[in-house]
Design a binder for these strands. Sequence first.
DNA 1: CTGGTGACGTTCGATTTTGAGCATATCCGT
DNA 2: ACGGATATGCTCAAAATCGAACGTCACCAG
Lengths: 243, 243
Amino acid sequence: MLKIERHQFITQQLANVGVVRVTELAEVLNVNPGTIRRDLIELEDQGIARRVHGGAMPRGSALRPGPASDLAGRIGQAAAGFIPDRSVVFLGPGTLTSEVVPFLHRHEHLTVITNALNIAWSTAQQKRHTLHILGGQVHADGGIYGDAETLRHVRVEWVVLEARGLDAARGLTHDERDPADMARGLFNLTAQVMVLAAPQALEHAGALFIAPASTLDILVTGREADNPPLWDLSELGVRIVLA
Amino acid sequence: MLKIERHQFITQQLANVGVVRVTELAEVLNVNPGTIRRDLIELEDQGIARRVHGGAMPRGSALRPGPASDLAGRIGQAAAGFIPDRSVVFLGPGTLTSEVVPFLHRHEHLTVITNALNIAWSTAQQKRHTLHILGGQVHADGGIYGDAETLRHVRVEWVVLEARGLDAARGLTHDERDPADMARGLFNLTAQVMVLAAPQALEHAGALFIAPASTLDILVTGREADNPPLWDLSELGVRIVLA
DNA sequence: CTGGTGACGTTCGATTTTGAGCATATCCGT
DNA sequence: ACGGATATGCTCAAAATCGAACGTCACCAG
């Protein structure tokens, strides 16, 4: 019984039955329960399964198109891979940054700082990491914008932001004032900056300048965005990651 | 039967039927009643269910009158009745203060300020009021505790807090440091103070002093708590509301 | 008001599951 | 065949889950 076969079988069971048990799988597939556990860990890392005590469930079952076409999930997973255990990370607002949180589930002892209400909520649900939240007014998109002073006491190792507009010439830009101000303040922290960008963000330039592209350390985007604008960014020293 | 399966079943029952009973669930799911109780405790922590004697009800069922045993809902509803339209209100952390939120759904143009993550989340879901959140570290109970400075710019008309300990002689008290400090700071704002108290809070005195009982404007508690300690509070000028 | 019935919280122990480490087995390119 | 990498099985301590027992408390009928 090849590992791939087991993975296919388990994936199918998850899709059809909705829940799998370690003991049952071990018996049906005739392998050691430890092997099934290792399988489930891999499937969880692939975003297919969600492990629970005694077995596993499908992840986001019918909510998402599927792992292969789930751009946001892929970007989130890739971004989470750069976050070391026991580090301090800032997560800004955005749909892509929100997708990072589920993949922080196996990290050890992170300290998460955020100014996004939904990210704070989902991180708190995990009950796994230390969580800080910045104060201010909660905007309709869940972003929290308040006193810029609060950033002065913050020391993080990674800043993860979502790009609205990004190109080599005009740098990182945004269309709205509060997020732009907040992002600008974050660049003053001596931290590594990782930017998550949907492909269309690479073809857009916002009205408000945040930082030159050369100050980014890592750019994570989808593999469908492999085109000339990206190569220019790469020449500026930005590490490009195609998820 | 995996725990997650039971939780799904119970959640579904709550959504469809509206009420679940411990004995019935134990029989249907074929597990010990103690197991069901533990499940309901978890679901209550997740904000899905509200435990009542004999079973549980769905959370946030504001419009329904609810059974007489729904102490938390009654207190929350009574408290919401004192909040005027177009006012600025601060909600502190706690299970009772959380119950106020569903009953703010019909108020007009409130500005809600909170240092509780779950309250911020449920208020944001309503997309109805202006919402501010205080920054700081998020504790396990959802309370956010940070720099006391942040309160200096805050001007509210009503402060709604939950009592851990309260009696006429020893005043409002708490057992933990951060919530006590926060509450003390809130009393410095020139606002009306409303305290929500479970009956057992009136028979408990915490180690940390917050404020004398005479500084409270309104005390909301359950009608099952109509006894001498309450009368003493009334003589200090506190308006007693039995929900 | 009062007693009885059932539910509750707590505690304990038994059982199951888990994670980690280690030894063995299998696969694969040379 | 050989050597390295990967996969698998196994053991064991720790953690999670579950059931049962017991004293206390809430609810309800009279």
